[in-house]
């Protein structure tokens, strides 16, 4: 961009400052208990102010409220964004204008919500939004670009303000990626550390990949052994086959690795030594219950599951 081109670009760009993205309009749905409950389920939010009518009735508020962080949710476009794309408005026009001039990168950097009043089921949330500011041209770590900020103001059916949201976005010219391959490792989502597969154990893990947990059995004296070894410790035979475990088991002991956090693992994985019905012990995870529910002697039922993109593992559930 020459200085002249930049000036022409910026003249048009800054004309967006102060432009309304949308005039005050109501949400399609009034604030309602159903959508609130769907939200609290996912967030794991047990706040009774949102969902416990009985508690709320005797609370200071006297009523349930919508989670303040849902303020922006009520006016969302909905499924049309996925099926037919976002409808055109001055903000999408501005974004398109950025894109046409090479500022194709987009990064939300800050979002600030301030709440002046709590909404309750039955209230209707109205929103109006304006492009509040556009920064001067800036060089950032991501590339050269402009920050723009939208200001959304929320009010209820009585035109009382509920709150505001300021959303700051960087539109930038993506920097040329040096050596495309360099970052691919960094972008890998980590998975569990796999067991190495050698001659004596590879067959066992290969069976797990096919959904089966096997137990090695001496062909000569029929003794079961786990983990697999090349020779029977009872009769020294090197001939063996295997049986498939029913994965009925019982907790012999258990713990949970709380610290450090290991990339690729769920937090606080519950690990247990499990006595299988066949008589051999195996170490695995206990899943499908809380740590506090696990106890020595607990009956488990296992199944082989895919636990991440690359890993099949036996996992045990309360029986």
């Amino acid at each position: 961009m020459t200085p002249e081109e930049q000036k022409a670009f910026e003249d048009k760009l800054y004309a967006y400052v102060g432009v309304k993205v949308c005039s005050r309009k109501p949400a399609k749905d009034a604030v309602n208990e159903t959508m609130i409950r769907h939200w609290t389920e996912v967030m794991g939010d047990n706040n009774p102010a949102y969902t416990d009518m009985e508690w709320a009735a005797s609370s200071r508020r006297g009523r349930t409220i919508a989670p303040p962080a849902m303020m922006y949710v009520w006016n969302q476009e909905g499924y049309s964004v996925a099926s037919s794309g976002r409808a055109s408005d001055p903000q999408t026009d501005m974004v398109e204008f950025f894109n046409e001039h090479g500022f194709t990168g987009v990064l939300g950097t800050n979002v600030k919500q301030e709440y002046s009043r709590e909404a309750s089921p039955g209230d209707t949330v109205y929103v109006e939004m304006v492009i509040d500011s556009i920064s001067e041209r800036k060089a950032t770590a991501r590339g050269t670009g402009y920050f723009f900020e939208t200001l959304a103001t929320f009010s209820d059916q009585n035109n009382e303000t509920l709150g505001t949201q300021r959303f700051r976005v960087l539109k930038f010219i993506p920097q040329e990626q040096p050596a495309a391959a360099a970052d691919t490792n960094e972008l890998q989502v980590p998975t569990r550390i796999p067991s190495p597969r050698g001659h004596d154990n590879g067959w066992w893990w290969n069976a797990v990949d096919e959904g089966k947990v096997l137990i090695q059995r001496c062909k000569s004296c029929q003794t079961l052994r786990h983990p697999p070894r090349p020779m029977c410790g009872e009769c020294q035979s090197m001939e063996w086959d295997s049986i498939e475990s029913t994965l009925d088991g019982e907790v012999m002991s258990y713990t949970s690795l709380r610290h450090p956090k290991i990339p690729g693992y769920p937090s606080d994985p519950i690990c247990a030594v499990i006595k299988l019905a066949e008589g051999t012990n195996i170490v695995s995870n206990v899943v499908g219950c809380e740590f506090a529910d696990v106890h020595i002697g607990m009956k488990l039922k296992g199944k082989v599951e895919q636990v991440d993109e690359k890993t099949m593992l036996p996992q045990f559930y309360p029986a």
Binding site: D45, A49, P68, A69, L107, N110, Q113, Y115, E118
Partner: peptide, 21 residues
């Protein structure tokens, strides 16, 4: 928001959430 109100309890009134992404 949930993280904070888990700690504060339900009578707390949330006034603002200011997040740097």
């Amino acid at each position: 928001s949930r993280f904070v109100t888990d700690w504060s309890g339900p009578e707390a009134i949330v006034k603002s959430l200011d997040v740097k992404l």
